[in-house]
Amino acid sequence: MLLIECPYCGERDETEFSYAGEAHIARPLETEKLNDAEWADYLFMRKNPKGAHREQWLHAAGCRRYFNAERDTVNYKVKSTYKIGEQS
């Protein structure tokens, strides 16, 4: 059971959060100009690394803010969390 540091509320139990997928995937501008492969890349392709992974989390039962986390997929340690728009 993780203890996750919400950048606003501080450390909270994992059960207060929900996972929101890989972080730092910007929605392309002018989507109508993308070819199928480029759009599919945005839509489907995710990194799924072994080790450090940047993820979005939502403090669903808390302040309802999304934030970014760097989590190690091997040992589950959340190395850092940071607000949307910030760098870790």
């Binding site: 929605r27 979005q56 939502l58 309802r64 999304y66 949307i84 728009g85």
Partner: peptide, 13 residues
Amino acid sequence: LAWMERWLQTEWP
């Protein structure tokens, strides 16, 4: 609600 918040908070602040 979470879906719309996500767009507002992460994509179109």
